[in-house]
């Protein structure tokens, strides 16, 4: 998929306060935004996925649960299904895993981020948004170690500061930004490099 452009995918990890943050962020991205986005939101094992329909409608774009072996496509936003870890293969398809919870979570942000970092190396953007706990901190570090771009939501703005705070403590993140500024940065990256 690396046809020009600097980045081939964006991964986002979000927990408590996440739906609100995503409901702001996604509709603000221009329709036709190319870089695929993969999201782990901590959700209950029995979630019926109605939050995905809501986001899809409000954001006016395709948002879907990732299926195993599904190929990652431009312009699409994928979310991890409830009660499975989501991983990305080096051939840019999805893999699911029902292994033990990681950081009390399944899906876990670390699991997605670590696999994505291996699959995309320096062609990946990792973003940690609002959330309690510390899931995602290790994963964001892996993205940084593999040369990707790392972003944390400004803890002062985040509804729940601990996840971005933990990420910032674990990694020298490239940007600490408000949601508004994250949107602007992503749009700028898409416009100048893609």
């Amino acid at each position: 998929m690396s046809d020009g452009g600097k980045y081939d995918a964006i991964v986002i990890g979000v927990s408590a306060g996440g739906l609100k943050a995503l409901r702001f962020l996604i509709p603000e991205l221009p329709v036709g935004f190319q870089i695929p986005i993969v999201i782990v939101q901590h959700i209950s094992a029995h979630s019926d996925g109605s939050w995905i329909h809501l986001l899809s409608k409000e954001g006016n774009r395709i948002i879907k649960e990732a299926d195993e072996k599904e190929e990652i496509k431009k312009e699409v936003i994928y979310v991890a299904p409830p009660n499975y870890h989501l991983m990305i293969e080096r051939d840019k398809t999805f893999a699911l895993d029902i292994d033990e919870k990681v950081n009390y979570a399944r899906p876990s942000i670390d699991v997605l981020f670590e696999s994505a970092a291996e699959a995309y190396r320096d062609r990946l953007i990792g973003i940690i948004l609002t959330g309690s706990g510390a899931d995602g901190a290790k994963g964001l570090k892996r993205i940084k170690d593999r040369g990707g771009l790392t972003i944390a939501q400004d803890p002062a703005e985040a509804e729940s500061a601990s996840m971005p705070t933990a990420a910032i403590a674990a990694t020298q993140v490239d940007h600490i930004l408000s949601l508004r500024d994250i949107v602007d940065l992503l749009v700028e990256i898409e416009n100048t490099h893609q």
């Binding site: 991983m87 990305i88 293969e89 080096r90 893999a95 895993d97 699991v111 670590e114 696999s115 699959a119």
Partner: peptide, 8 residues
């Protein structure tokens, strides 16, 4: 097997 799984 899935490489991502084995790698992890």
């Amino acid at each position: 097997y899935s490489e991502a799984h084995v790698r992890r």
